[in-house]
């Protein structure tokens, strides 16, 4: 990227909780610095729904739990030079992946019919063409597309995200200090 040209960043939250996005916002006043460095393309932060062009960096929060996640992730891979998994859900599936050792039907029955906190006299499991089909299990992002960097954590700390982004945007190697790579 040229010196006067700002880097384009896109972000998304797949099967995540938006906690990683919150953590990104936790960089506090450094967000002003970030705004100097980048311009946001498709992202829930600015509510841009479609890519407007090629991006330098894509940040992926969350793994893939349904077919829509897969499409979005593939779209990100297509449009971004560098793709980063941020947070444990993207890097290993995270909390949603707790269902991965249980057959899908059992999961749905527990969630919508038999669970101790469920009241569902009709026994209906939500099913509408608008609802993306759920995958057999939750996949970490790198099992679906190639991922260039992983920043684990639940969520990764604001410092972790900041340091990694600054390194990338200033063309320095992403080498985080010991305290910034954590899985919790």
């Amino acid at each position: 990227m040229g010196e006067n040209q700002k880097a384009r960043i896109a972000t998304t939250s797949l099967a995540g909780c938006f906690g990683c996005h919150m953590s990104l916002l936790d960089i506090d006043e450094r967000i002003l610095q970030l705004a100097e460095l980048v311009v946001f393309d498709k992202s829930p932060i600015n509510d841009i729904k479609q890519f407007t062009g090629r991006c330098d960096v894509g940040l992926i929060e969350g793994g893939c739990c349904n077919e829509h996640n897969v499409e979005v992730l593939r779209d990100f891979r297509k449009h971004c030079d560098i793709l980063i998994s941020i947070g444990d859900c993207a890097t290993m599936g995270g909390i949603p992946a707790l269902r991965n050792t249980v057959p899908l039907q059992e999961c749905l029955d527990e969630a919508y019919r038999d669970g101790p906190s469920v009241h569902n006299p009709s026994g209906m499991i939500p099913n509408d063409v608008e609802l993306p089909l759920i995958l057999d299990k939750v996949y970490p992002a790198h099992e679906v597309v190639k991922i260039d960097y992983h920043l684990p954590g639940c969520p990764p700390s604001a410092d972790t995200l900041w340091e990694a982004l600054v390194a990338l945007l200033t063309a320095k190697p992403v080498e985080l200090p010991y305290e910034l790579v954590k899985y919790d």
């Binding site: 299990k137 992983h150 920043l151």
Partner: peptide
């Protein structure tokens, strides 16, 4: 952490 692993590169097995 010591070995700087940010994500395993092998496929998760998800055994019960």
């Amino acid at each position: 952490y010591k070995f700087g692993i940010t994500a395993p590169s092998f496929t998760y097995q998800w055994q019960k």
